[in-house]
Nucleic acid binder design. Structure first.
Lengths: 349, 349
DNA sequence: ATTAGCACTCCAAACAATCGAGTGCTAACA
DNA sequence: TGTTAGCACTCGATTGTTTGGAGTGCTAAT
């Protein structure tokens, strides 16, 4: 794929993209001829541009307009022309991720930081539960007919639920129950907690098996509960900074809706996790219609995956116009990703 | 204030507002002359309109255009012309508020329901903590150097936090601590938990007072923690349905930003809670610049307060264009408010 | 007191004219 | 042979002009 472009075409393509990034306007041959490093007449450039267009790297919105990069052009830029500064380890000190113990709070901070730094709408998904392991379970009597069930998962993700019961459990039984729950559930992943296991535990429970079963089922539910599988967003209104996304009300509305619809967003961002067409530093760039989501042709999406514990992954991402400062975005994401990884590893010890 | 408008002026004002609600266009005298119930010539109407304008109930965008209601006009409409059907008690069955035990989930459902029903951006604030009372506190060992602190407040609002400790607490001390915490904190409001109290508890703690103090402080922090004071929003993108709010990108962006900025939103929505200029059914309508917030001149805000327990209040609200279906909104809010009140009262028993 | 009639205003939409940035092509040039 | 100057041409954007119509205020008749 490289060989279809000679040195000079690459130079010009780069100049076009750089200029377009700055102005957002189609760029013409004369502009390029004045671009630093290019010393060719506009006529020559026109010829080269004509070739580049034929090869599909740039397009003309209409005759007698300048050229803008096509998705293929952007792709080439991202793959070959973008030199990302490796993030200094020390560099991450400006991250200022407060040592909060709650994952939710941490992620909220991260998404805000991401949005503020990049100036693009940002998304952070909480790590998927499916491979996360139970660390601690506890039932407590909080009222006569209410039990509080608290579950701590890896990464100190805390889930809780109030369970209504018909008759109160006395302290002795509660203690037994807690023992039973912890011995059986500790270290298990969500998917390993199934009816079969509950059945097994019920038998172990002995005497008050009935209550046990009901409670157990709710505990399992609580752990499986994906309501907490939050997606955090921030800076959605940044799209108004980019006319190509917000001039068209229809489109602006679509994008904002997508950002508001957590379920869809979750699903979408998840898809990118295991995809292995990753770019350097584990950061994935999707340009325009490479993203198969509807109404997203004019957007690029950059995502990165962070890891909480072995296999427990979450994603951070931004959505912006195709004319995006990819370098800054990739560098920022890379920094934040590693900051996050570090913060999580720390809290994991 | 009533007496400055005679029967006929009211009739015409009403016709203007009704028509304007439908069309969104300035309405002229001829249109009104054909309005059901009005049998006057356009010329007569013009005279009346001229008076209404002088009195400030309607305005003319420019000479030779029709009239639109002013804030004062809307206010009159809302105060005197709007007959709200009292919400049938049974009527609320369509509410379908699932009996979720977690307040957060309930509120998320409510805000979505509100947005879906009204088609306006909706906001629901979690009840203010300040007057809420501690119901149950528990510390547990979750790892060698980590304690889990769980606090259940009125309305089953659960807060939790991981506390890092230098040395583990043995079971006996943990038990003592839990006793201490519950005896001292139970039934207290957030504001009653202060340094003085902590000091008192420290003395009671006896031997391992040091750890106790540190932990206690964190517990107090956890309870006071207002991070959980969530505001839920839904349907923000509905503003695109109303050209008067979204045609101007600047304004659209402002409104959406406000909806995204939870802190500001929280503060704003709180202000309306204790204000006693309430309308029928405890629902408050703010029209245009009655709301002193910047960039909200073209919006109306309708809020209602729900009550969790004695004095523990939260707010639900919608933001829409001044040309809003006030009747439907007020009725919907009224229904949802009472549905919510009922659901909460139930979970409180 | 009401209304028909009329002159007047002013926005919005349609249309026309102009400008200029940019192109492709050709012919001259190093 | 690759580069460049020059030129005719295209086409969107901008600006100005015209026109139509909805609406008003005022006056005079009922």
């Amino acid at each position: 794929m490289d060989d279809e472009l000679d040195e000079r075409k690459i130079l010009i393509l780069n100049a076009i993209i750089q200029t377009y990034f700055e102005t957002g306007e189609p760029v013409g041959s004369r502009t390029i001829s004045k671009f630093p490093g290019v010393s060719l007449s506009s006529a020559t450039i026109r010829n080269e541009m004509s070739d580049l267009e034929e090869l599909g790297y740039i397009v003309q919105p209409h005759t007698s307009a300048g050229r803008i990069p096509s998705d293929k052009g952007y792709r080439f830029y991202v793959d070959h022309l973008l030199d990302v500064k490796e993030s200094d380890a020390d560099d991450a000190k400006d991250l200022l991720l407060k040592k909060t113990e709650k994952l939710e709070e941490l992620l909220k901070q991260v998404v805000q930081l991401l949005a503020k730094t990049t100036q693009y709408p940002s998304v952070v998904s909480a790590p998927s539960m499916s491979t996360n392991r139970v660390k601690f379970v506890q039932l407590s009597n909080v009222a006569d007919d209410q039990l509080l069930c608290v579950v701590v998962m890896g990464g100190n993700l805390v889930k809780n639920r109030i369970i209504e019961v018909d008759e109160p459990l006395d302290n002795e039984n509660l203690l037994k129950m807690n023992m039973l729950l912890n011995t059986n559930l500790n270290g298990l992943t969500v998917s390993e907690i199934n009816l079969e296991l509950i059945q097994k535990m019920k038998i172990q429970a002995g005497e008050n098996a009935e209550i046990v079963e009901a409670v157990m089922r709710t505990v399992a539910e609580t752990i499986n509960d994906s309501d907490d599988l939050e997606v955090y967003t921030s800076g959605a209104t940044n799209i108004f900074k980019y006319p190509e996304l917000s001039d068209n009300k229809q489109q602006a509305s679509e994008i904002l809706s997508k950002l508001e619809n957590k379920e869809e967003l979750q699903e979408f961002i998840r898809e990118t996790e295991d995809d292995e067409e990753l770019k350097k530093n584990g950061i994935r760039v999707m340009i325009g219609s490479e993203n198969e989501m509807a109404n997203m042709e004019d957007c690029s999406v950059v995502t990165a995956t962070y890891e909480l514990a072995d296999g427990v992954k979450g994603t951070i991402g931004i959505i912006g116009p195709k004319r995006m400062d990819y370098r800054k975005v990739v560098e920022t994401m890379s920094r934040i990703k590693s900051g996050l990884d570090r913060a999580l590893r720390h809290s994991e010890d």
